[in-house]
């Protein structure tokens, strides 16, 4: 069977990862496909994976009994979905739903957490990459909050 390694190596999130580390991560990877409308994860569930999106589009949303689903932001090709697997209590805080046919690689969080503990060099590498993702999300969220196109901007 063809391994997922070359696909992972080519993804922006993992670009430049050392071969040893790439092997470690490939060991936790599996291919997944989501149909349009299908939930990838739901708020409150245990967060035991994250996803490297290869194709399609995913919306992160929350739910209000009055308004229904409230979309927050979208993730697509070249991006990473989910980081709750990395921080206790390892539960999803939002829903994620495929908007289009979405192909992704799921990475087993439990397996990765253990590998990060066992090999801190590997752990640091993963942490650096997630810090980047989280910082980027935080900056984008701040920009969204600024409502720059609003009436008083």
């Amino acid at each position: 069977m063809e391994t997922l390694e070359p696909i992972l190596a080519a993804h922006p999130f993992l670009k430049g990862l050392e071969p040893d580390h790439l092997k470690l991560i490939t060991g936790c990877a599996s291919n997944v496909v989501f149909q349009p409308g299908q939930f990838i994860f739901r708020e409150g569930e245990e967060a035991n994976q994250f996803y490297i999106v290869r194709e399609g589009k995913v919306v992160i949303e929350t739910y209000s009994p009055v308004k229904g689903p409230i979309p927050i932001h979208t993730r697509q090709k070249g991006e990473v979905l989910g980081w709750s697997w990395l921080v206790p209590p390892y539960r999803w805080h939002f829903d994620a739903r495929a908007l289009e046919l979405t192909r992704a690689i799921a990475l087993d969080g439990k397996c990765l957490r253990q590998k990060c503990e066992d090999d801190h060099d590997f752990g640091y590498e993963i942490m650096k990459r997630f810090a980047f993702v989280i910082a980027e999300r935080l900056e984008a969220t701040r920009l969204q909050l600024l409502d720059v196109y609003g009436d008083r901007s």
């Binding site: 589009k57 979309p71 932001h73 979208t74 697509q76 908007l99 289009e100 984008a140 920009l143 969204q144």
Partner: peptide, 9 residues
């Protein structure tokens, strides 16, 4: 069904 993201992203 489109993107929800700041334009910089």
């Amino acid at each position: 069904q489109g993107n929800i993201e700041v334009v910089t992203r």
